[in-house]
């Protein structure tokens, strides 16, 4: 796919840490509205790829474009978030000394300057949006609870809710099912499929059952570059993939 009609476009991206090549000539394109699953063994470069897209790590070489025109390598985390890239971390990171409600209020799309927030008065529309999100992530009962008191799975959901509150164009979701029960994992897959109806989503996951339930195009990373791409059945049939990952 050409750069001009892509949402996210990575071409020849390399990152090395002290000689170790975390990403090696990685090229990847996400179309607007697409949902993509990214799998790969530990150390394949999945999280580093997220870091490059969100501005946490600068690539040594290669191009990263958002919306076909915006060069992400020249932007920092804040401007990339403002452009509409939201990220959920591998380890759920919510604001533990805030309530569930406050976590969502902080994430809600609104002007982000200090003086905007200093004089901010919550509107009815914002309340409704937070209520809707609370229903969606099934934490309505816990709205007044400190995020620190949530279970691991609930924190994962809260973070997905915060991601949605930002209303990004592209969601990067790192291991959403980690530490969840089987039932929760299935629910999370449903939730992500819902979200994918009106957002572009990139999901990084280890859990093959989870990836299968998403039934989307899969990219297999290995040693910092793309090993195979296609439907899960297609990549599972690939001998190299079986060798490095599925066969173990």
């Amino acid at each position: 796919m050409a750069r001009s009609n892509s949402l996210l476009y990575l071409d020849g991206v390399s990152v090395s840490f002290d000689g170790f090549k975390a990403l090696n000539e990685l090229s990847l394109t996400i179309a607007p509205g697409e949902m993509r699953a990214i799998i790969g063994p530990n150390g394949a470069g999945k999280t580093t790829m997220m870091d490059v897209i969100t501005g946490k790590t600068r690539p040594d070489t290669g191009e990263v474009y958002f919306n076909g025109t915006v060069d992400l390598t020249g932007e920092d985390e804040v401007s990339i978030a403002e452009l509409g890239v939201g990220r959920k971390f591998q380890k759920p990171t919510v604001f533990e000394s805030h309530t569930v409600w406050d976590n969502l209020e902080l994430a809600l799309k609104a002007p982000r300057g200090p003086f905007n927030t200093l004089f901010h008065v919550i509107t009815g529309g914002e309340r409704k949006r937070i209520d809707d999100l609370l229903d969606l992530i099934r934490l309505g009962e816990k709205r007044g609870e400190l995020a620190a008191n949530l279970s691991h799975g609930q924190k994962q959901w809260l973070e997905i809710g915060m991601l949605l509150a930002q209303d990004p164009k592209l969601l990067l979701v790192d291991e959403p099912a980690a530490g969840m029960t089987d039932a929760e994992t299935a629910e999370t897959a449903e939730l992500l499929k819902d979200i994918a109806n009106d957002h572009s989503v990139v999901v990084v996951e280890h859990d093959m059952v989870f990836v299968r339930s998403l039934s989307v195009k899969v990219t297999v990373l290995h040693e910092g570059s793309v090993l195979a791409e296609g439907s899960l059945d297609h990549v599972s049939a690939d001998e190299r993939v079986v060798e490095v990952y599925l066969g173990r």
Binding site: V78, F89, E105, Q166
Partner: peptide, 30 residues
Amino acid sequence: ITRSKLGKVLVAVRDAESRTRFLGYRVEHY
């Protein structure tokens, strides 16, 4: 100040600075 939304952002910065950045807040301005 501490009871405003800005105050909530400050506590967020205190507890998880880089997370606050990924939400789009310019931590250094706060």
